[in-house]
Amino acid sequence: MDPEREEQFTSLFLTVFSAGICFSSYHIGIGTLHVPGSGFFPFWGGIALGLLSLANFLVATTKRRRAIRQVASSRNGVSWKNLLLTFAFLFAYPVVLNLFGFPLSTFVFFFLFLRVIEPQKWSIVLGLSAAAALLTYAVFQYSLKVQFPAGIFGF
């Protein structure tokens, strides 16, 4: 997708989003100026967002081509692999935390991060992961009294 389209796309997305907000707010009840209803504020917020998004769409389409190209250049050199893997690890962490408890899931998180995202030597990966898991466990569990799910191993 070219940069101009991206700009138009975000504006249109927010326009549609604001239309949804207005529709929901209308159904909640806008009320009157004398007695504003629950939907009053989000409705007018939605109107404002919609109008601004449309204005941005028009600006992006007609006047701001130069600025948009600058945006495009900031996207060069992005490591999509690192980004997607980080997100995958982050989304998987709560699931693993529930299953295996804090120390093990944190060890695995550090291990994967240091081995896959920022590749380090095996000794550093294992040592740092174990140290980080134990240290953070001590800090959160004993110092800050955070209660973690026990996991299948009971800790």
């Binding site: 998180f109 550090f110 991060f113 240091l114 959160f140």
Partner: peptide, 14 residues
């Protein structure tokens, strides 16, 4: 930064 990032992320998650 590679060492700091997972630590900060764990802090965020917990």
């Amino acid at each position: 930064y590679g060492y700091l990032i997972p630590s900060i992320l764990i802090f965020c998650l917990i």
